[in-house]
Design a protein around this nucleic acid. Sequence first.
DNA 1: TGAAGATGTATCGGCCCGATACATCGCGAA
DNA 2: TTCGCGATGTATCGGGCCGATACATCTTCA
Lengths: 208, 208
Amino acid sequence: MLEMAILGLLQEAPMHGYELRKELAAKLGTLRAAISYGTLYPTLKRLNTAGWISEQAASTSIVPPMTSKRGRIVYKITAEGKERFADLLAQAGPETYDDAGFGVHFTFFSRTDRATRLRILEGRRRRIEERREGLRDMMARAGDRLDAYTLELQRHGLDACEREVRWLEELITNERSGRSPDRNNPSSAAGPAVETPPVTPAPHLDRP
Amino acid sequence: MLEMAILGLLQEAPMHGYELRKELAAKLGTLRAAISYGTLYPTLKRLNTAGWISEQAASTSIVPPMTSKRGRIVYKITAEGKERFADLLAQAGPETYDDAGFGVHFTFFSRTDRATRLRILEGRRRRIEERREGLRDMMARAGDRLDAYTLELQRHGLDACEREVRWLEELITNERSGRSPDRNNPSSAAGPAVETPPVTPAPHLDRP
DNA sequence: TGAAGATGTATCGGCCCGATACATCGCGAA
DNA sequence: TTCGCGATGTATCGGGCCGATACATCTTCA
């Protein structure tokens, strides 16, 4: 899953690890906790070995280009990596519907075709509905057995489920009628399916 | 964290692994996905080695008590395990405030003293507030840069944060004024701090 | 100049997951 | 009666991901 996130970010612009982590934490929001370096660097190494990305040493300061032993490393997606990302974008399996997977896929929805978007949204909805049903008949069946705190936790969980289902319903409806999810920007409410959409280019701020 | 959950469940009644998993999935609700056997059995082994629990072979059928090679194993908490659980109950560190940790701790709130309950609730609130702030000034600062889908994901995440903070506020208020969280059962709204509370005994259904 | 703090790369031990395998039990159809 | 099949139950393995930690470099400011 993290593989997909990295490939997607690098598709927008080359970056080094530190930037990648910040971008990741920013875009993935609540569905995915901030990624750890203990995960990030091994994964980058793995992607490099697989040939999806390439590493390129780069010095931080402008003047001495190669004096330092350990400078920053800029990661760049390769042609194979782009193919790989396209594959990942199009597929929707069970791991696409858990919190982390859904968050990553949703983040790249503007680069996903509408059919896949719908498949994912509906799969996620199904998943949450199952969770909700489980919670419901647990609370119904267990008026005793559960103490007040546990019950309150379930109640809150159930509420969150119902809320997310409603959110998904709305998104699905919008998808079917060809609308963008953006409610505050009605100007973009006409665009049909997106293949290479108006992703704002992400300036690759080397020195902010 | 799983260690605490297991110890807590076994404090209510001895169980075998399969039961434990179901009980776990039931009580922990949404904050914690169903535990995997690949985690459960190694953890049980670890707890046994540490001396917190004891394993005891038991045949499933009633008649032949010892004919089978691999029967079910009933796990039981030891005196040391109870001490350990009491320690875990009382402590509140950073790992107590993430989703999984908070879920487990909250589940055992009826066995936690009020001061610790308040510490945990407030720590969790602080954690969620930080997440919320991060989300807020991300959305404020990034009117461009973020496409409509990413923005919508953030908006939904922000909403969930605000909702959880309100929920926590309410729980904290209730704690301070000495009320039980159960809104549907006003009969239990008078009990002061709980040390060995009316936990319903969990019948240990050996044959359902 | 030099110390503090932000930036940046990297490893290690350990928790936990999904997939898989395998054994036993209860029950109903052939 | 027996055979198979689904539920119950224990167990392992590879791998993803995390938190803690270490260490190097750059920027800033007193």
